[in-house]
Each structure stands twice: as structure tokens, then as C-alpha cells.
């Protein structure tokens, strides 16, 4: 009991269930408000912003030549040492210079997606893209090689991101995939 003694206002509040009604209005407001659940993966998918640091991607220039010059700066900048680069000489026009990577692998389970490698890259060949569905059931996806990384990612650089798009859930023998429909998007705060 309160030390002030008898409080008429308090009693009236209790008799009229004021606080109870206040609580009920709050919950009713939430009940009729829109849900914030994202129906990932089979109905909606979040398209990250450009600054998002996801799966590595190796770029080509407009003539289709590899931008990577195998300078190994990314491997040196990497705090976990997960990038392996073995350079080789090639003047057939595969890369922009006659030094290209024979091997360029990243160990994805080691990688902490800090983005130092893309900062270190002098030719902007290496970017951390917007792929974030990296899970797999065996070790096949833990080591990504140059050939895989040279394939352009499904979300192109031109899309600013930061919104929810419609998506489809596809089951293939290779595994399951979430396919976004980039044309149908809606802005939504997350």
C-alpha cells in the first residue's frame, strides 16, 4: 500500500480500469497495424544496398577482359588470409595486362567479409557483391574459385537496392534457390 494514505484519484483510476483500457488500446493498435514480417524466401526477398558486403565477385572491363592483374594486394590485405592468388604470364588478351591470375580462390568459411580486399584492389576487379545465400550442405561451396566468381551476380550494380522484391523459391537438383523478381519491388522500412 502507498505511504501517502488514501488516494481518491488512484481509486477512481482502479475502479474505471483506466490503465487496463490504455493497455488494450495499445495492443489493439498493434493488432490492426501492418505486420513487419518479411515473407522470405518464397514470397519476398530483401535486396541489399550497394554498400552491402556479400559474396566476392571478379569484374571484367567493357571489352570482356579480366580486370584482375594478380597483384596479390587483396591476399596481403586479408586479415584472415583466406585469399590465395597465384599469378601467371598471359599475353593472349585474357586480362587487361599480361599478368593474370592462374588461381584466385577465396575460402568463404574463413572470410569475415570486412571488405579490405576490395579497398586494396587497384583495378577495381574485386568487389564484395550482394549475394548472401551462401549456405550449402557439403564443402563444395566453401572454396570459391576464379571461374565461379567471374560469373556476374544476379543483382546488377545498377540497382541501388534497399527494398523488398517479390521472389520465387526454386527447387532444383543442384539445391534450392531464391529467385528475385527485380522489377517488382516495394519500398519498406526494415
Amino acid at each position: 500500500m502507498s505511504k501517502k494514505g488514501f488516494d481518491l484519484f488512484d481509486l477512481v483510476k482502479k475502479v474505471l480500469f483506466t490503465d487496463f483500457v490504455k493497455g488494450l488500446t495499445v495492443t489493439l493498435g498493434y493488432n490492426i497495424s501492418k505486420s513487419i514480417t518479411m515473407r522470405y524466401p518464397d514470397e519476398e526477398k530483401w535486396v541489399p544496398y550497394r554498400r552491402f558486403r556479400g559474396m566476392h565477385t571478379l569484374n571484367r572491363d567493357e571489352n570482356g577482359r579480366e580486370l584482375c592483374v594478380a597483384c596479390e594486394l587483396c591476399a596481403k590485405a586479408c586479415p584472415t588470409g583466406c585469399i590465395t592468388v597465384i599469378p601467371m604470364e598471359d599475353n593472349t588478351g585474357r586480362g587487361i595486362s599480361d599478368r593474370v591470375a592462374q588461381v584466385w580462390t577465396v575460402n568463404v568459411v574463413r572470410c569475415l567479409f570486412c571488405g579490405y580486399c576490395e579497398d586494396a584492389c587497384p583495378t577495381r576487379a574485386l568487389r564484395l557483391g550482394r549475394e548472401f545465400e551462401l549456405a550449402c550442405t557439403d564443402f563444395s561451396c566453401t572454396l570459391k574459385s576464379r571461374e565461379e566468381l567471374l560469373v556476374p551476380q544476379p543483382i546488377p550494380e545498377s540497382i541501388p537496392g534497399g527494398y523488398v522484391v517479390k521472389s520465387k523459391f526454386e527447387r532444383t537438383p543442384q539445391g534450392i534457390k531464391v529467385v528475385p523478381e527485380l522489377s517488382k519491388y516495394k519500398k519498406r522500412s526494415i
Binding site: N31, S35, T37
Partner: peptide, 13 residues
């Protein structure tokens, strides 16, 4: 469903 919507979720879906 009521639980979900009061907690700004969807509930069974």
C-alpha cells in the same frame, strides 16, 4: 493469429 498480429508478426502463414 491474434498473438502474431498483436506482436506485429503474421502468425501461422
Amino acid at each position: 493469429k491474434v498473438a502474431g498480429h498483436i506482436q506485429v508478426r503474421l502468425g501461422p502463414w
